[in-house]
Amino acid sequence: MTERDATKNQHPRVVVVYLLRDGAEGPEVLLGEKRRGLGSGRVVGPGGKREGTETAVETAVREVAEEVGLRLDPADLEARGTLDYRFPFRPSWSQVSDVFVCRRWSGTPTASEELAPRWIPVADVPYDAMWDDARYWLPGVLAGGSVEARFTFADDDATVAGFTGSGVDAAAASSAD
């Protein structure tokens, strides 16, 4: 989806950033428990809503600084795709998210009012504690892939009812059962 196409979409634009590092036991990703707002209590990557005329990259840099106290160089952000989230039973939750991976930053992750971050081995990402869609696309993104997909949520506003696009693992649906 191009920037121009995204402006035609009436849903709010957001970003999410997955910070990756080499840990003692292998690759790790910085995730945290969301402390307030949409998704409160779920495990998520740092991110949030675009403000004003911000680009996705500008939002990513700002949100990571605000939520986990790390400074990013925009050149270090790797764009990995776009997710279009649809909540037919709660339309105000629908949004379009740009996905980034980042392997360089400065600072030490610190908790904020928004997020309590911690490093988690990529092999141990707690998908059951995340939004349901993450199990379908996040493993591929963390392994170096990308995603361009739309997820539609069921009437419980928590379970994926369907999806279209690329970079999505349909087999993840059976592992969710």
Rank of each mutant, 00 (worst) to 15 (best):
G52D: 11
A60C: 08
C102W: 07
D84G: 00
W93S: 04
T59C: 14
G45Y: 02
S106G: 06
E51F: 03
G47I: 08
A56P: 04
E67A: 03
G69L: 07
E66Q: 07
P88D: 13
P91Y: 13
A75G: 15
G81C: 08
V68D: 11
L70R: 12
Q95N: 14
P88L: 15
V64M: 10
L77G: 12
R103M: 04
D98I: 02
P88W: 13
G45T: 02
L77H: 09
E78V: 04
P91F: 13
E54N: 13
L77Q: 04
V44R: 05
G52E: 06
E63T: 01
R71L: 15
L70T: 05
V99S: 09
P46R: 04
Q95M: 14
S97W: 02
D84A: 04
E63C: 12
T55A: 06
V101F: 00
E78K: 05
D73I: 03
T55C: 12
L70A: 11
L72A: 15
S106K: 02
R90K: 08
A60K: 02
V99H: 01
E51Y: 03
G45C: 06
A60D: 03
R103H: 09
W105V: 03
V96W: 10
A75M: 09
R86I: 01
A79T: 01
P91W: 05
V99L: 11
V99T: 10
G48S: 11
L77N: 05
R104N: 13
G69F: 10
R103S: 13
A79H: 11
G45M: 00
G69A: 10
T55M: 04
D73L: 15
R103P: 08
V57N: 03
E63H: 09
R62N: 08
L70H: 12
E58N: 13
F87I: 08
V57P: 03
G48V: 00
G47Q: 05
V44F: 10
S94R: 06
Y85S: 12
T55N: 13
T53L: 06
G52P: 02
W105N: 06
D76S: 15
A75H: 14
T82H: 03
R103Q: 12
Q95Y: 09
D98V: 02
W105A: 10
F100K: 08
L77A: 01
P74E: 14
V68P: 08
D73V: 10
V64N: 07
E78L: 04
A75P: 12
E58Q: 15
A60M: 01
T82P: 01
R90I: 01
G69H: 14
S92A: 14
K49R: 11
D98M: 07
G52H: 06
R86W: 04
